[in-house]
Amino acid sequence: MKIQKRTIALCIYFGFLILPIYWMLNMSLRTNADILGNFALYPADMTFHNYVHIFTDHT
């Protein structure tokens, strides 16, 4: 029982560690208008346009 409590606490901490990084990933897969327009926990229509943009934009 004690071991389980520890594991749960550890999992909560790891969630806290992962969430900001996940949120960044979530933002990277959405368009600007979508990010500012509606709050979503996961990208509904995923787009890789942002990645294409940073690798092809010469400026």
Binding site: P20, M27, I35
Partner: peptide, 17 residues
Amino acid sequence: GTIWIIFTRPDIGLFGV
């Protein structure tokens, strides 16, 4: 710093919202 700006914004960040 950028991650936490986005994460804590009151309109689009998970923490802020």
